[in-house]
Amino acid sequence: MEPVLFILFGAIAVCGAIMVVTRKHPMASALYLILTLFAVAALFVLRQAHFLAAVQVIVYAGAVVVLFVFVIMLINVPENRMPVERVTTVRFLGVIAAGLFILESAVLARRFSMPKGPAAEVGTVEAVGRALFTDYLLAFEVTSVLLLSAVIGAIALAKKKI
């Protein structure tokens, strides 16, 4: 069952990602981004990472993409002022470089051997919470400073007068 689900949700994630970078209007991109994020959350469930799957849906699809949608509607760029995309040499080389990167990673991933077996119980709420509040307590606390600075920065930047 796992291979079928992996291929299904992996294909959905990759197709959604391709649509995100190829759509003309940012709103279509945002909706395809939600599709990709849900497919990735399904892959997390496949690896028994239930906590992260829930956080992925709540934080990414529920907060980050909604923020994107708000900004798209807030600035509401008229259709004729959208940037016109043209194929230039630099852009073409960029796509080729990304393709080479994927190929190189595929070759490296095949040589990287790991014990394969059923998913270990490390992604449950209990296991992640235990690791987060013991071994990684400092990182967890520093995260609060990061979020605070992001909040202050976002408010300060979006104010009328800087």
Partner: peptide, 15 residues
């Protein structure tokens, strides 16, 4: 799969 998603993201950023 992770590399493919990252690569598509790179394509989006550069193009």
């Amino acid at each position: 799969l992770s590399a493919i998603l990252f690569g598509i993201g790179v394509v989006g950023v550069v193009t």
